[in-house]
Design a protein around this nucleic acid. Sequence first.
DNA 1: ACCTCCCTGGCC
DNA 2: GGCCAGGGAGGT
Length: 276
Amino acid sequence: MPELPEVEATRRHLAPVLTGAVVTAVDVRRERMLRRQPRPADFSDRLAGRRVESLDRHGKFLMARLEGDVTWVTHLGMSGRLRLCAPTASEEAHTNVVVALDRGREVRFVDPRTFGFVAAFLPDELAAGSMARLGPDALTGLPAPAGLAGRLAGRTAAIKPMLLDQGFLAGLGNIYADEVLFRAGIAPTRPAGGLSPAEIASLHAAIGPVLADGLAHGGTSLGDLAYLLPDGRAGEHLEHLAVYGREGEPCRRCGTPVRRAVLRARSTFWCERCQR
DNA sequence: ACCTCCCTGGCC
DNA sequence: GGCCAGGGAGGT
């Protein structure tokens, strides 16, 4: 599902086409996709006719900066993906929003479960919204170990839910949080404030490589293929996952069967021998 | 810091 | 035919 590596892979595919392109038309087929936009009509009105200046990302949020201080925000939720198509290309089910560009291309937001959203925000709306409360980006702004330690100190919550808290660190989701904890050798239920400096150093050292690996493989497409790259290809990171989705299968490091439990309503996979 | 809700394809 | 997956917002 779309977490930081999937969103970044999407961004890298779209950026060369979107940058400098002009939005010629906007078609919203599911109004629910605009539920974060105070006045839904603003989405089309603010995008149409404007040129895209850049395509950025913070955590799992994609942000296209347009002329006139408009930011086109896209969040893929858990089943969303962006497709880059010719306007004549056949349309797949659950194409909920279509943004047509000059140059004869379209960006299509496909999202069966509709947990994703799009919006066109002005600077004050951006500053007042949830995006302003995101923590540092896990890939590009990861705090040094001492910084992580300071932000974990005194926290009684388990470390895994802390890693999923976008206000603590932006970009990790359920898959990569489990992968990070495996690589760091830390059990997901450990109280966040109880980690030793050495463990925090391991955690810090694990985050970059885990995300970079996922990104290098084009992200993780699960069996349902909810996430795909903008050209329709599947990400190939699934077969490289160390623990996520591997309940009962041997740990790749020690052979002990991978365990699964539900932690705060999220499936959690870990090796009880490698992770303490 | 916790719980509930949203939504739908796919699976049992 | 019913249940599960789950990111983020909102509420308690």
